[in-house]
Simulated assay, not measured.
Amino acid sequence: MKLQEKILTAAKETISTEAKAIANLEHLIDEEFVEAVETIYNSTGRVIVTGIGKSAVIGNKIVATLNSTGTPAVFMHAGDAIHGDLGTIQKEDVVLCISKSGNSPEIKVLVPFIKNFNNTLIAITGDKSSFLGQAADFVLNSYVEKEACPNNLAPTTSTTAQLVIGDAVAICLLKLRGFSRKDFAKYHPGGSLGKKLYLRVSDITSQNQKPRVSPESNITEVILEISEKMLGVTPVIENNEIIGIITDGDIRRMLKNNEEIKGLTAKDIMSANPKIISHNALAVDALEIIQENKISQLLAAENGRYTGVVHLHNLIREGIL
């Protein structure tokens, strides 16, 4: 087998193996899963997530997901727990322990201490009859038939299954809490994701110049306004209300279709009923309108009053697109 074929075959087999295992998890979700989620939801404490090895790595990701979706969570490494980190666990906390086998030496040492604290213990494990499975108050079954590793040794499919179970828990809690886009924005203020959730049209329009012409403005005035304000567009304003729009494309079409332009005014070439968005709308909503209508600029207004222009380039520069 050629090297390229070997790589493609291995990659496809890995994806296929993991996909089948993940699909099977749906059949493992039961009443115990429901009770575990309800326990976390009703708890006044945090979720303390613990594990060892690759399960610890997955645990860190689950903690990040829980925290970002409204469920306070802390990671506690199972190996460090018995050397002082057990103090992380407070009275009202729920402990979520992750282990494929449920029989790791560190887990066997840790679990009795957790039980002595009388905290609720939830297990994510592939073996319900294991030491962890037997000790836990609730077991979230992450059983997989085999690893993607051809030797069935390297944690691959099993860690993916643990991650999916953790995501399922987090999303269930998100829905129970009614966690909204506004809530999400509070925890994700940075980067393009944050901007999609909090950046508003007013934040964009304030960066731009504010072109405008009256219905009686002559063509020279219109062309100069579009050129000077560098947005490729100008609204036609009457009594501070938008009655039309003129783009640089409209100017080109006017020159092509009219041999004599002297005497033409803005109202003669404007497009009536332009697309308008609220001054307070999210910038990502402006992007949606721009894309749906295949336009480059969008006018903004507040209570019917013109407030500015949003250009596609603004949204690209902000990382919204």
Results as ranks from 00 to 15, higher is better:
residue 109 V to P: 01
residue 308 G to K: 03
residue 128 K to A: 11
residue 112 P to K: 02
residue 81 A to C: 15
residue 265 T to I: 15
residue 183 D to R: 08
residue 54 K to M: 07
residue 141 N to A: 01
residue 75 F to I: 04
residue 251 I to N: 02
residue 29 I to D: 00
residue 259 E to V: 11
residue 295 I to W: 14
residue 187 Y to G: 00
residue 21 A to F: 02
residue 65 T to H: 04
residue 207 Q to P: 00
residue 253 R to M: 03
residue 114 I to E: 00
residue 318 E to A: 14
residue 239 N to F: 03
residue 93 D to N: 06
residue 261 I to R: 04
residue 282 L to E: 00
residue 123 A to Y: 09
residue 287 L to M: 13
residue 280 N to T: 15
residue 251 I to V: 11
residue 100 K to F: 13
residue 109 V to S: 14
residue 75 F to N: 02
residue 12 K to V: 07
residue 199 L to D: 10
residue 159 T to H: 05
residue 198 Y to V: 10
residue 264 L to F: 15
residue 97 C to V: 14
residue 321 L to Q: 07
residue 250 D to V: 14
residue 172 C to W: 08
residue 300 A to E: 05
residue 148 A to R: 03
residue 8 L to H: 10
residue 251 I to L: 12
residue 156 T to C: 06
residue 316 I to E: 09
residue 195 K to R: 13
residue 107 I to S: 02
residue 179 F to K: 05
residue 105 P to C: 08
residue 194 G to F: 13
residue 319 G to Y: 11
residue 183 D to G: 05
residue 131 F to C: 10
residue 306 Y to A: 01
residue 37 V to M: 06
residue 17 T to H: 08
residue 299 L to E: 06
residue 216 E to I: 11
residue 222 V to I: 06
residue 170 A to R: 12
residue 32 E to C: 04
residue 225 E to F: 01
residue 222 V to Y: 03
residue 315 L to A: 10
residue 229 K to T: 04
residue 253 R to D: 08
residue 229 K to C: 02
residue 312 L to H: 03
residue 158 S to K: 11
residue 206 S to K: 15
residue 16 S to P: 09
residue 77 H to V: 07
residue 250 D to M: 09
residue 187 Y to P: 02
residue 18 E to G: 01
residue 256 K to V: 13
residue 103 N to D: 11
residue 33 F to C: 12
residue 25 L to I: 02
residue 108 K to H: 10
residue 284 V to E: 05
residue 160 T to W: 09
residue 169 V to T: 06
residue 294 K to V: 10
residue 138 F to K: 05
residue 79 G to I: 04
residue 3 L to W: 14
residue 275 K to R: 14
residue 117 F to A: 15
residue 15 I to N: 07
residue 15 I to G: 12
residue 126 G to R: 00
residue 310 V to R: 11
residue 317 R to P: 00
residue 139 V to A: 04
residue 171 I to Q: 06
residue 298 L to H: 01
residue 61 K to F: 02
residue 252 R to Y: 03
residue 157 T to K: 14
residue 261 I to Y: 10
residue 311 H to M: 08
residue 175 K to Q: 13
residue 181 R to D: 10
residue 96 L to Q: 07
residue 88 T to C: 10
residue 75 F to P: 03
residue 7 I to D: 12
residue 252 R to A: 04
residue 13 E to V: 10
residue 22 I to D: 11
residue 91 K to W: 00
residue 139 V to F: 08
residue 143 Y to G: 03
residue 177 R to H: 09
residue 268 D to A: 09
residue 245 I to Y: 01
residue 203 D to I: 09
residue 24 N to A: 12
residue 69 T to G: 00
residue 239 N to S: 15
residue 15 I to V: 15
residue 79 G to K: 04
residue 243 I to Q: 05
residue 48 I to V: 13
residue 136 A to T: 14
residue 312 L to E: 07
residue 1 M to W: 05
residue 303 N to G: 14
residue 274 P to F: 01
residue 199 L to N: 01
residue 141 N to T: 06
residue 10 A to Y: 15
residue 258 N to M: 09
residue 311 H to S: 12
residue 128 K to P: 14
residue 274 P to W: 00
residue 34 V to G: 00
residue 36 A to P: 02
residue 107 I to E: 04
residue 147 E to K: 14
residue 121 L to C: 09
residue 207 Q to C: 10
residue 245 I to Q: 05
residue 317 R to N: 08
residue 269 I to A: 03
residue 248 D to C: 05
residue 230 M to L: 12
residue 226 I to M: 01
residue 247 T to Y: 04
residue 82 I to M: 13
